[in-house]
């Protein structure tokens, strides 16, 4: 990743993580939503290459939304067929999360290039951090039930992000 794109990527990654909070009650849900969202992102961006430079700029977003919704529906059907326990846990949040994560990433990347490499790097970061939150909540949740309550996701992520930015982003001014 070159440094020019770094800031945009970080913002998009942050937005995606904040959207994915619902799925972080356990490692299993975090991993499955992380993977599924990445698949939606990658396939949607791949298909978008068919329209790039051809369709009018103003319509690209609409195409992106339709394609995302389409891949999301397919993924949700696959979840319903093969991963019933995750559907039992997350229910309608699955399509909501997959759809919103894909859209929000595209908005904050704010480019109409649909670079697959970029999306791939972003997806890996997304899965890792989401699973990180999932692991922490699952491990601590066994001891302190308050960790399993929704608010803990905010606080754990807050500290996790602070630690990450303390390590990687030395000259940080604003997020």
């Amino acid at each position: 990743m070159n440094s020019y794109n770094n800031k945009k990527n970080n913002t998009a990654l942050l937005a995606a993580i904040c959207t994915g909070f619902v799925a972080t009650t356990s490692l299993k849900t975090a991993l499955s939503i992380g993977l599924a969202a990445s698949i939606v992102l990658i396939i949607t961006n791949l298909i978008m290459h068919l329209f790039i430079n051809k369709a009018p700029n103003s319509m690209l977003m609409l195409f992106y939304i339709i394609l995302t919704a389409f891949i999301t529906s397919i993924m949700y059907l696959i979840f319903q067929a093969y991963f019933p326990d995750i559907v039992n846990e997350l229910g309608i949040y699955i399509p909501v999360l997959l759809f919103t994560i894909s859209i929000i990433v595209q908005i904050f990347l704010h480019e109409k290039k649909y670079s697959i490499l970029n999306i791939l790097a972003l997806s890996i970061g997304f899965i890792l951090i989401l699973c990180g939150i999932g692991i922490i909540r699952e491990l601590l949740g066994g001891k302190y039930t308050a960790i399993l309550e929704a608010p803990a996701a905010f606080i754990i992520t807050g500290f996790l992000l602070a630690i990450l930015s303390g390590i990687f982003d030395k000259d940080k001014k604003t997020a």
Partner: peptide
């Protein structure tokens, strides 16, 4: 490190 998003979260 906490400024911005982390402190808000």
């Amino acid at each position: 490190a906490f400024s911005g998003i982390p402190i808000r979260l």
